[in-house]
């Protein structure tokens, strides 16, 4: 049973991304949306923690939300998959369930 997790708050504001990554299992995908996209930036104070906890899971980010915040895709952490809304729908369809970390 693979789960798609969505996180919509910045890891610099709440613990939900780090908590989500600590709970996610291998085969799951963690999709960062809305302010959650800040968690996908390389070179931040939390990038190492995100990469370390995200070892067994797929990390993804919603590209329109990155663009809305002026974050260049080139500044993403290695291995983070960038998806559009159609890609978000595909992730929801290909995982068995969705858990929103609100």
């Amino acid at each position: 049973m693979a789960t798609l997790h969505t996180v919509n708050k910045s890891p610099f504001a709440t613990q939900s991304l780090l908590s989500c990554l600590a709970h996610a299992k291998a085969g799951d995908t963690v999709l960062m949306i809305e302010d959650g996209v800040y968690g996908a930036s390389a070179g931040t104070g939390l990038a190492e923690a995100v990469a370390g906890l995200g070892g067994g899971v797929t990390l993804a980010v919603l590209a329109p939300d990155l663009k809305a915040r002026g974050i260049d895709a080139a500044r993403l952490m290695d291995g983070v998959k960038s998806v559009d809304y159609a890609g978000f729908v595909d992730l929801a369809a290909t995982h068995d369930r969705t858990q929103s970390w609100l």
Binding site: N8, I33, E34, D35, P64, D65, D84, Y85, A86, F88, V89, D90, A92, A93, L102
Partner: peptide, 26 residues
């Protein structure tokens, strides 16, 4: 949809997700 409009972004994201799902044949 649990968040009000013009608060953060949830109702916008939900709308864009719904639109994309319908466009994808779901």
């Amino acid at each position: 949809v649990n968040e009000g409009p013009y608060t953060h972004q949830a109702s916008d994201t939900a709308y864009n997700f719904a639109k994309a799902a319908l466009a994808g044949g779901h």
